[in-house]
Design a protein around this nucleic acid. Structure first.
Length: 189
DNA sequence: AGGATGATGGACT
DNA sequence: GTCCATCATCCTA
């Protein structure tokens, strides 16, 4: 049986990205379970999108974005950090979704050890990736394979989603393709 | 709370 | 040589 995520991720990233919020990113690397609920994502739409790594077409680096939807694309950011995307859209489109932040559901102790600190554990794309133990060698993994050491699983949908311009980019700043889970006003948070 | 800045590797001109 | 889909730390309030 095919996961709903597969159908979801085979669509346009700007439509799939907000629906990906609430899903779980699960890592079983190092015999340690970490489960993180995704709360912030950004859509990148290949050649249509000047901010996308794929906007100039397929290269060795961005090739996982052109693979089947649900393929893990890991890239090095600013020479220091790793960041993780899932490919989206039909194979060959170069579309993707950057997973930027979440909340730890299981394995906080593991994350504290990997991050080397006890606060700000997963509130950024480099931090989220480090929390899960994802590095360059995991590039190209199938996130939709239940047997994968790094995988996506369905989770509870968010109550409210806010769309804003994407963060940290210099081009295509007008597109509201960053999606964040928000809480109802007055919920006490 | 918020601005500045150095670290550091790979892709691209 | 320049540009980043960043983060931690240091500084001024």
């Amino acid at each position: 049986m095919t996961s709903g995520l597969r159908k979801l991720l085979s669509g346009s990233p700007e439509e799939a990205a907000p629906l990906l919020l609430g899903s779980y990113l699960v890592s079983t690397l190092d015999d340690s379970l970490v489960r993180i609920r995704i709360t912030e994502v950004e859509a990148y739409k290949g050649s249509d999108d000047q901010a996308s790594h794929a906007h100039n077409g397929r290269t060795v680096r961005n090739s996982p974005m052109f693979a089947a939807p649900g393929t893990l694309y890991v890239y090095r950011s600013y020479g220091i950090h790793w960041c993780a995307n899932t490919s989206a859209g039909p194979e060959g489109t170069g579309w993707g979704i950057l997973m930027r932040a979440g909340e730890i559901v299981e394995g906080e102790g593991v994350v504290v050890r990997r991050r080397g600190r006890a606060t700000d554990l997963v509130n950024g794309p480099g931090k989220l990736t480090q929390a899960l133990g994802i590095v360059g060698e995991h590039n190209g993994l199938d996130l939709l394979d239940p047997g994968s050491q790094i995988r996506l699983e369905t989770g509870p949908a968010p109550g409210y989603v806010m769309a804003t311009p994407r963060i940290g980019i210099s081009r295509a700043r007008d597109l509201p393709w960053r999606f964040v889970e928000t809480h109802p006003v007055g919920s006490g948070g």
